[in-house]
């Protein structure tokens, strides 16, 4: 008899414990998911575009002016402010914007927002980014309307562009390659969207992926963006893996010069914030890209 209450008490603690375990697992998962979301927003370089270009600007509250050959765009506010940000967006809204270039009302975005690269981001990563963006403080910051030539003012034109140039595909790991290479491919081609600057574009502003990462004569600020394949002259053919790791962490080129222009923001907001393993994965992937122009 004496054993019964003991048992009952034991199973009661057990139930309580189980509940505790379940509850803390949920809490831990979401804290983990938030941390992951924050990390991915850095790895996605969202901060460089969605933060205004002035001292003291609040990260992700929008307003950066992006000058392109097609007009001037202003990056929207990504904080959860209901009026001027993306407060109230569902995961589905967020996923449609990021991976399909569609606003909640169905209208298409302009591809200056690199959704063609982001199309390959995984479901779990999209959900984690959405969760973290929802958790940051809302900032009321209305962003100016884009300044576009009359013939580009209708967003719906981009449906045509999407039809011609946009074929969203989830990322497919290559089983013939190792884990580092696949992680690097995911970071370079999708989340880190390196090709948005380093790959040349056609007349319509679409990436020419037959020359992926081979360099771009007309980069985002009008300047030249160097190639980052293994070409010896116009690329990274002379760089060692250690050279690349140091560059991605600190921005230092092998000759001791420091990258400037738009790449310094990529280093500050994205690659310097990554884990050493992720930087290594990027370097491993870049080292696998055969030269296109030099034998």
């Amino acid at each position: 008899m004496a054993a019964r209450p003991g048992l009952a008490a034991g199973s009661r603690t057990c139930v309580a414990l189980l509940l505790c375990l379940v509850a803390s697992a949920v809490a831990a998962a979401s804290a983990e998911q938030l941390a992951r979301g924050r990390y991915l927003v850095h790895a996605g370089g969202c901060i460089s575009c969605h933060t205004a270009d002035r001292d003291g600007a609040i990260p992700l509250a929008g307003g950066r002016r992006l000058e392109t050959p097609f007009g001037i765009f202003y990056a929207p506010n990504l904080t959860p402010d209901r009026k001027t940000g993306i407060g109230g967006w569902s995961d589905t809204d967020f996923s449609a914007a990021l991976r399909h270039g569609r606003a909640p009302d169905g209208s298409p975005y302009y591809p200056v927002f690199p959704y063609p690269a982001y199309a390959g981001i995984s479901d779990a990563d999209v959900a984690a980014m959405a969760a973290w963006l929802r958790s940051i403080p809302p900032v009321h910051n209305p962003v100016p309307a884009h300044e576009l030539p009359w013939y580009l003012r209708s967003r719906w034109l981009m449906l045509g562009w999407n039809l011609l140039f946009f074929d969203p595909q989830p990322f497919q790991a290559d089983p013939a390659r190792d884990k580092d290479w696949n992680r690097g491919a995911y970071l370079v081609r999708h989340l880190g969207h390196c090709g948005e600057c380093h790959t040349p574009r056609n007349l319509f502003g679409a990436r020419d992926d037959s020359r992926e990462l081979a360099g771009n004569a007309a980069g985002p600020d009008g300047g030249k963006v160097p190639g980052i394949r293994q070409d010896r002259e116009q690329g990274l053919g002379r760089w060692t893996l250690d050279d690349m790791l140091l560059f991605l962490e600190l921005g230092m080129l092998p000759n001791g010069d420091f990258a400037g222009s738009s790449m310094s923001a990529v280093i500050d907001d994205n690659t310097s914030q990554l884990t050493g393993d992720d930087r290594r994965a990027i370097a491993v992937y870049l080292q696998s890209l055969a030269p296109l122009d030099s034998p």
């Binding site: 300047g223 160097p226 600190l250 921005g251 230092m252 420091f258 990258a259 400037g260 222009s261 280093i267």
Partner: peptide
């Protein structure tokens, strides 16, 4: 300190040095 030196080189080039053209 080395990271800070790099940031100072990078920060100045970012704002005051022309991109290749």
């Amino acid at each position: 300190a080395f990271k800070a030196v790099g940031d100072s080189c990078k920060g100045c080039h970012d704002r005051y040095r022309k991109e290749d053209d």
